[in-house]
Design a protein around this nucleic acid. Structure first.
Lengths: 257, 257
DNA sequence: GATCCGAGTTGACTCAGATCAAGGCGCGGC
DNA sequence: GCCGCGCCTTGATCTGAGTCAACTCGGATC
């Protein structure tokens, strides 16, 4: 029940955009101080508990906005209960489907989440008034589309072992970038997801996820400090297992390995 | 070798945007006559033969633009040769990765293709000058992202039978929309793809595609007038096989069934 | 500190789809 | 009209991951 992966410091609300922790990466990151003041007037914060549904599939969403803290998963669900994760959003990522009344997926808070939200109509008005906002949103959506396509390769063609290795490399890169750590052996990061959520991300079953973790652990490629903390012992090998094309990461994938 | 799926009439080049067959759906569809005149000045046409590579993965692309005629597939390829299709583009779709120098996939002409292109730098300048252009591009990318996520559900969770049925339903909807035909039994459309390309789309092997076609045919759900022409005999059943959530298509999925 | 409970792991068995291997068929070339 | 060549289909077999079923572990409760 309790979520050890991330107990964010939701106590000190920034409240002024200029102090916002995601100011430099979010949809508003190109906004001028004047534009930001406009956004400041109409924004509002809302918190969600782990497991809480943020939007239901097909539901009309009144609001949309940025993740300030926490992790949100987007799922598609079939009537018989099969579930596939189709998005995994971190702080500064944008949640919601602008320019359409409803989203074709549901969004669930994985950890404790704080969102910086706008009412749909007001946001869309801002989008028309502030070209910086629209430009940044376009950029972010193009990046998400690229990520979705990479993910499609994983779902369509990779083995279970390759899938888990790919997932761990994504988290490793994120951790290295966020915490200014080197991409080198010993890199340690928290898993924001349960085994079940990882299975939904990778398009495999929870048992297969578990077996692949065990296999990588027994081979000395990773260590599990606890269920939710991964230490990468041999980063270069982990990367090789993914069978990813180095071109996709512009050589920056493995600076030190 | 010869491509029976689409022998487009590439003879009569529109040349003036106002006469363009994709004027109402492409990235320029929100452009005012004045804006269109600006675009008209910098656009140029280029044709590609079936099988011809339009952009290579990771390659710096000098130009990008809209598909006027024909079908283009986007692929990701692993070093060992495994291939996954990650995009299938039809007339009026936009090809190219704006705001980034290179695309993380390759694009191949499936049929004879005509593109309406812009030099990257000129297009990006227009994007900044014409808000209608940027808005329409944003909208199109959001729709592609939705489609990519639907596709992720297919790749991650559907059976081979469900995958083929889903693919045929997509083509059936497209055909009905384009040709103003009803979504009803008897609907007939051309397959723009070889069995191999369908397999790359669906994340399965060519043999499995073939077996699933045979199975649907033997059950009287579809008929194959020839290898590249599908007639749907029982549309409602085909739709049920997909196990798609009706909510995803807002009831419009099966008007008549 | 005994018990409980949900999350994760591991093992045995099954099965959908991959792989390997023949053939069939339609079309272009001569 | 026969040949050859892709493309497609079909059959036989194999296998990676799914399914079903115990079992383990660690943290929370009292």
């Amino acid at each position: 029940m309790s979520n050890i992966a991330s107990i964010p410091s939701l106590l000190n609300v920034p409240d002024r955009c200029s102090d916002c922790p995601i100011r430099n990466r979010a949809v508003c990151s190109y906004s001028t101080p004047n534009e930001l003041a406009e956004l400041d007037k109409i924004k509002f914060y809302r918190d969600f508990d782990p497991g809480q549904e943020i939007v239901g599939e097909g539901e009309m969403t009144q609001s949309l906005g940025s993740i300030v803290e926490g992790v949100v998963a987007l799922h598609k669900v079939m009537e018989d209960g099969r579930r596939q994760m189709v998005g995994l959003l971190f702080p500064s990522d944008f949640l919601g489907r602008p320019l359409r009344p409803s989203a074709p997926y549901d969004a669930v808070a994985i950890t404790q989440v704080r969102m910086c939200l706008f009412h749909r109509s007001q946001f869309e008005e801002m989008l028309s008034q502030q070209q910086t906002l629209e430009r940044r949103l376009l950029e972010m959506m193009l990046d998400e589309l690229d990520a979705a396509r990479e993910w499609m390769l994983l779902l369509g063609r990779k083995t279970a072992r390759e899938r888990l290795a790919s997932f761990l490399m994504i988290l490793a890169r994120r951790a290295a970038a966020m915490e200014q750590k080197a991409m080198s052996d010993g890199l340690t990061f928290a898993l924001p997801l349960t085994r079940e959520a990882i299975a939904e991300y990778l398009g495999i079953t929870i048992e297969t996820v578990s077996r692949q973790f065990s296999s990588l652990r027994k081979e000395g490629i990773i260590a599990l400090d606890n269920l939710r903390t991964v230490r990468v012992l041999r980063l270069a090998e982990l990367y090789e297992i993914t069978h990813d094309d180095p071109a996709d990461f512009g050589d920056g994938a493995l600076n030190s390995a």
